[in-house]
Design a protein around this nucleic acid. Structure first.
Lengths: 192, 192
DNA sequence: AGCAACATGTAACGAGTTACATGATTTA
DNA sequence: TAAATCATGTAACTCGTTACATGTTGCT
């Protein structure tokens, strides 16, 4: 599979693709989509507020990647993916740029752990390990409950793969923090 | 450890903290720092080009978090971290906001795998698994070589913890992609 | 009647990318 | 002497956040 995109085509606009992806599993309003960004996507993948989402939906409608069902109370507009929208989503999902956009404050902190004094670094790593352990304890039962409800043959619940990704992410960071603590202890044992 | 920051203090500016963190391991010029962003930090944590870095260094000098050694050929300016800079770096490293900035195109794609048709999703996951396997094969020998050169008692090489983080990240994603393929196969076996 | 939640929009600002612009030093 | 690399800077544009602004519907 081709993991890179050497064509000089359309760049960036990941918010648009996030919206296309969310709309792929059913019509939704700007309000609904704003709520969606408050969940896992906003926590782990991409952030956006309603003030950015509404204008983008407008542009997507212009580009005929979505259509509006003018209806619903309180001026609610429901957007539905068009074939053009689904095609663009698929194109984006299958063609990865050589350098994808990344801006992750948490990962940045991990890259900079070694800029702290050893005692501070240790405290930070201990905090990370604890935090991950707590998140794992919170997420694992959610996944297990979802799996228990799932009958063979049913389609996977929306977000199940993403949830698993989050869980494994926390497990990886947890393991890394513990490994780093051991590694630091071997080099420069804590005083006390 | 306090993993959240409820104080209404200074927001965002992660680029500044990335620069403070890089300068913590030694003085560098804007050019050097721009190069640094082309490596692991830019690939996994935070992106920035020279056009953003130079003005930010200017502001940091104004705020006296760095000082300039006016010297060097071609108008090269070397920046050195001050105590104020180190204090600010430490503050940022130890106080985590409730919701950290995240914008990661790759993770976004993983969240949206389920928006693809099963055959496309399978091809994508296979591609991810292969890509991760290749990166793991590339990174592991680098780490092992670094570890082999390392003598007990020496400080950890700069970036060793970050490198391990990257490696474990790829391992986690690799495992997730394989798990997802199995999970999908159980639900909707591939045709053929 | 009042409050929470639903629902949409705009404006000002902050932060990053691409492109424009210039020049000095080193190396082949 | 030509090219690559070093080295810095600015301007225009895009994208995201915070704050401003307004009105409706459903629930208690």
């Amino acid at each position: 599979m081709d993991m890179s995109d050497r064509t000089g085509t359309v760049r960036f606009m990941s918010l648009r693709h996030a919206l296309l992806g969310l709309l792929a599993h059913g019509p939704a309003s700007g309000y609904d989509l704003t709520r969606a960004f408050e969940g896992g996507i906003g926590q782990y993948a991409w952030q956006a507020g309603h003030s950015r989402i509404y204008p983008e939906l407008g542009k997507m409608a212009e580009a005929e990647q979505v259509v509006v069902d003018e209806a619903g109370p309180r001026g609610r507009k429901t957007y539905t993916l068009t074939d053009a929208g689904r095609t663009e989503l698929r194109r984006w999902m299958l063609h990865w740029p050589e350098q994808a956009t990344v801006r992750d404050e948490t990962v940045l902190r991990m890259f900079l752990v070694q800029s702290l004094e050893p005692d501070d670094a240790r405290r930070l790593l201990e905090g990370i390990a604890e935090h991950c352990a707590a998140e794992i304890a919170r997420l694992r039962p959610v996944m297990e409950a979802e799996d228990a409800e799932h009958h063979p043959g049913d389609p996977l619940p929306f977000g199940r793969l993403a949830g698993e990704y989050g869980l494994r992410q926390y497990e990886a960071v947890h393991g890394w923090a513990l490994w780093s603590l051991e590694r630091m202890a071997a080099v420069e044992p804590a005083v006390g």
